[in-house]
Write a protein that binds this DNA or RNA. Structure first.
Lengths: 323, 323
DNA sequence: CTGTTAGCGCGTTCAC
DNA sequence: GTGAACGCGCTAACAG
């Protein structure tokens, strides 16, 4: 009876007076239905797990997580943390394995945030096979691979570097160089996509390509000094951009006075640098929100595998100016 | 029976053969006890809530959280997220209220991470009264106040500024100035404690005090130029240190060449600055671990209110050098 | 030392 | 439109 009122059970009518009495009593006593007992009956925990193989201090993780929590709150789900990674210098802890939590019915589904940085012992395929064999409702955010029966929210690496270059182009720059991924990074899909983006950008606008890496910074400095026309640089990532900034500072080259610099990803510290660094930001929060929505649909059995990719955004800061 | 074997129930022996059979079957079937049913019987959810009024992207929160998760994993607890804050520019979401989750028995206790930054609508007292009236097992990390019946893990602000100054002193500096908290910050306990620390440090070593704030930076620059002996500055926090660094850079004053600079708190970006900024770091991870341990004790009914304060640590980076 | 059973608090179904 | 009764899967108490 109480249950009917509190849950607004469809197809069940309750006398207005009875309903009033119940609601009054609930308010008076501060009564809340026991979620464990309720879960016992409904066979749902109303919790989802969030899994990360990253350091939980990662700002990327945090933004995605925030997005997930918005959707979860909206739908009455709580979020259980299943961290499989380890913090910098910290011990690993794997007692919160999501497959186990699912079997024990502590969670109804999972959001898996896949790492793109190289990390020992991580295998996306392995996790996909666990998800498949246990039939765990799941959405993978930030994936490498493309399994047809798994839901994904993709990150568009290609687009991030392309947009960065395009931004410089649109603001008048014509000689745009690229600080490319390190050889190690180029082993990954992500790194290769990013490099491809720069090349295709240059090709589209009939610009000369010029790619360099950390070892080539001296040449870049010389080129700037010679006034050879180079006016903009796309750094593959913030880390590289930072190295570049340090070297330019030492060499007395002013940013953005003599050269504009933009990075193909965004980090929290980008806004803190001097000058603050222009970047391309992934729509991380939205990815979390959408991913969680896809998961909810899947848990309701209302959907099969879905795949989406969201658009990036330019964060124009001090390190770039029109040419 | 199965339960006895899997839980190693104390005071209950099971025939070796039976035990073998059970364990085999468990392994074979991938059986895991249903945690909802188990919770139904034991009246414990084996989850704790973690509550933050901060932006979840805060590195402080993340480190504490990581510590909490280590203890939780060790004790077989999962962590449920109850965020009451809002991310930068993000909508609030309060559907995950911890008092509600406790009443519904979704969590057995909470870790509350209190904000020190001024934040509208936050009242620690209010939360303490909720905790009291519902008798929620709780530990508050990073608190302002000192309620006798509540467990706390304190942060030693006083010590952080004192240590920073002491570090400069120990490395040979004798003229040590202090970039003090802003008037707004001085309204808070934290700000006043920090200022007191600088004064007592100076008094102890019979040094002259010199306190300035953002509006006094010009004077500081002049003093450095005049070579008046000033060799070290303690900035109350990283944010202030950063402003100082920017002004010094513009003025052509070299850090640490002409002046050493250390901040009385630590931020992720401190290590990313150029030069990287020496700081005093709170033992955040340990605070999380210890706080969670205190909570577990309390949930077992084995302890009343406990209060601890952990020691800070100097993070010596490029912005300081011996005098 | 081992097998059996009651009952945790809901949501649901069935009889009224 | 309402109340009673059942059962989810465990654990703990109890009986043998």
């Amino acid at each position: 009876m109480v249950s009917f009122v509190l849950n607004d059970t469809p197809g069940r009518s309750v006398a207005a007076e009875t309903r009033e009495n119940i609601l009054d009593a609930v308010k008076e006593l501060g009564y809340r239905p026991d979620s464990i007992a309720s879960g016992m009956r409904t066979r749902r925990s109303m919790s989802i797990g969030i899994v990360s193989f990253w350091n939980i201090s990662s700002s990327v993780f945090n933004e995605i997580f925030y997005g997930v929590s918005l959707t979860a709150a909206r739908e009455g789900y709580t979020i259980l943390f299943c961290n499989l990674g380890r913090a910098v210098n910290g011990p690993a802890h794997d007692g919160q394995d999501y497959a186990d939590l699912y079997k024990r019915r502590k969670i109804d589904g999972i959001i898996l945030i896949s790492p793109h940085s190289v990390q020992t012992g991580f295998s996306e395929d392995e996790h996909i096979s666990v998800i498949r064999s246990l039939k765990i409702p799941a959405v993978i955010i930030n994936a490498y691979t493309h399994a047809p029966d798994i839901s994904y929210v993709y990150t568009d690496f290609y687009d991030s570097v392309y947009m960065a270059a395009e931004y410089l182009y649109k603001t008048g720059h014509r000689a745009i160089w690229y600080m490319k991924p390190s050889p190690a990074e180029l082993e990954d899909y992500q790194g290769r996509e990013r490099l491809r983006a720069y090349r295709e950008f240059a090709h589209k606008h009939c610009l000369k390509t010029n790619e360099f890496d950390e070892s080539g910074i001296d040449n870049v400095i010389n080129s700037v000094r010679k006034g050879a026309g180079l006016s903009g640089i796309v750094a593959n990532k913030c880390a590289g951009a930072q190295i570049l900034m340090k070297r330019f500072l030492t060499a007395g080259i002013r940013i953005p006075g003599e050269i504009s610099l933009i990075a193909g990803n965004d980090e929290t510290y980008a806004a803190q640098l001097i000058p603050s660094l222009s970047t391309v930001k992934l729509p991380l929060r939205m990815m979390g929100e959408k991913g969680a929505e896809m998961l909810m649909k899947q848990m309701r059995g209302a959907a099969g595998a879905e795949k989406i990719t969201l658009k990036n955004r330019i964060m124009a800061r001090e390190s770039t100016r029109p040419f």
